[in-house]
Amino acid sequence: MATPTTATGTNKLLLIIIAFFLPPLAVALKEGLNGSFLLNLVLTLLFWLPGFIHALLVIL
Rank of each mutant, 00 (worst) to 15 (best):
M1E: 06
M1T: 04
A2C: 03
A2I: 10
P4S: 03
T5G: 06
T8V: 01
T8K: 01
T8S: 04
T8Y: 01
G9N: 07
G9Q: 06
G9M: 03
G9F: 09
G9L: 05
N11L: 14
N11E: 15
K12V: 10
K12P: 03
L15I: 06
L15R: 12
I16V: 13
I16D: 12
I16H: 14
I18T: 15
A19N: 08
F20Q: 03
F20T: 09
F21M: 11
F21N: 07
L22H: 13
L22G: 09
L22P: 06
P23C: 08
P23G: 07
P24T: 09
P24S: 08
P24L: 11
P24Y: 12
L25M: 05
L25R: 00
L25G: 03
A26S: 08
A26T: 05
A26Y: 07
L29Y: 07
L29H: 04
K30C: 04
K30T: 07
E31W: 09
E31K: 13
E31Q: 12
G32N: 11
G32W: 14
G32Q: 11
L33P: 04
L33S: 05
L33Y: 14
N34T: 12
N34Q: 12
N34K: 14
G35Y: 09
L38G: 10
L39I: 15
N40V: 06
N40G: 09
N40S: 04
L41D: 02
L41K: 00
V42M: 08
V42G: 06
V42P: 05
L43K: 06
L43A: 11
T44A: 10
T44S: 13
L46W: 12
L46Y: 10
W48P: 02
W48G: 02
L49C: 00
P50A: 01
P50Q: 02
P50M: 03
G51E: 02
F52T: 00
I53P: 02
I53Q: 02
I53G: 02
I53Y: 12
I53V: 14
I53A: 09
H54M: 04
H54Q: 07
H54E: 02
H54K: 03
H54R: 04
H54A: 06
A55M: 06
L56H: 08
L56F: 15
L57P: 01
L57G: 09
V58K: 00
V58H: 00
V58L: 00
I59V: 08
I59A: 05
